[in-house]
């Protein structure tokens, strides 16, 4: 295949977009090594400065106490994300699976009913959540906040899992039925092991939401010790409002774990949402 003019254009476009996506990440981590003056005098310079590695140490240790540093924010984010995953996947997998055996019409109806939830503005939910959590004594409790994110993740998780299970080969399920596996054991022994990829994909999408959103956690998690990285980062930024080096170092540290998790599981994500999204 000869290289056509069109193909060159494609390569240029793809390279430009990749640069546009990657350069900010590189800049932020490099800014983390710079002084204020170096950041402002030459924002484009990636090499011509003396690296201040200490910025990263400062950022890692910053916090009003050892209970509220970036490390603690990570732990809280982890708690929220795991709770959210357990809730959303734990309910959406069986729900999406068994719903796929209903008639097409009923499956559609249920799906519509479930995804209607996505049109509720999140900002509208925040005040009722706060009042309920307050009267239940659940404020500043990352586990409880995780349940909220889990619940809000259900519509997408349910949709994607359901679309996946509809495409699941019926012949295999019938074989399971004939072998005397009941419906539950068919799900756990036969279907789940074959759905790992999809589950990981949906899980990552949910994880990203729980990890990055701050509309909800900023209201439900007010004490710094209970805050996840998304909210902790805001007060962290406040702490370094005039000291950009350590601030960018902190932003880098905050972004790295989720990027690594994403890179590890990215092949599932590509397949998982592609499959789910394609369905009608």
């Amino acid at each position: 295949m000869k290289i056509s003019f069109g193909r060159i254009i494609v390569y240029i476009a793809v390279t430009l977009w990749t640069l546009l996506v990657l350069l900010p990440f590189i800049s932020v981590s490099v800014f983390g090594l710079k002084s204020n003056t170096a950041i402002f005098s030459n924002p484009l310079g990636l090499f011509d400065f003396v690296p201040i590695w200490e910025n990263y140490v400062i950022a890692w240790n910053a916090g009003p106490s050892s209970d509220a540093t970036i490390g603690v924010f990570f732990v809280n984010s982890g708690i929220i994300a795991i709770t959210a995953l357990v809730v959303s996947l734990g309910l959406s997998i069986p729900g999406g699976y068994f719903t796929s055996f209903l008639t097409r019409k009923w499956n559609q109806r249920i799906l519509l009913f479930v995804i209607v939830g996505t049109v509720v503005p999140i900002i509208m939910l925040v005040i009722p959540y706060f009042r309920a959590f307050n009267s239940l004594g659940l404020l500043n409790n990352p586990w409880a906040t995780g349940v909220v994110y889990g619940a809000l993740n259900i519509p997408t998780a349910f949709l994607l899992m359901n679309r996946f299970f509809i495409d699941f080969p019926r012949e295999m399920l019938e074989a399971g039925l004939i072998d005397g596996l009941g419906p539950i054991r068919t799900l756990t022994k036969l279907v789940l092991p074959l759905s790992k990829g999809q589950i990981v994909a949906v899980g990552i999408l949910n994880l990203v939401f729980a990890w990055t959103d701050y509309q909800i956690s900023i209201v439900l998690l007010t004490s710094r010790e209970s805050q996840p990285i998304s909210v902790g980062l805001l007060s962290f930024i406040g702490d370094f409002s005039a000291d950009y080096g350590p601030m960018f170092a902190g932003l880098t540290l905050a972004s790295v774990p989720i990027l690594i998790i994403y890179i590890i599981f990215s092949r599932y994500v590509t397949k998982g949402i592609a499959l789910g999204g394609i369905s009608k």
Binding site: V87, L91, S92, P94, G95, Y97, F98, T99, F101, L102, T103, I110, F113, V114, G117, V120, M124, L125, P128, Y129, A132, V148, G150, A151, L152, I154, P155, F158, R170, L173, E174, L177, G182, P183, I184
Partner: peptide
Amino acid sequence: LAAANKKWAILSLLPVFGMLFLFLALP
């Protein structure tokens, strides 16, 4: 297959709708 799984569909949808009701519809 559908018949074998139907009652499980209803059972498994209960907590889903419960959560959606609590965390979306009610607020």
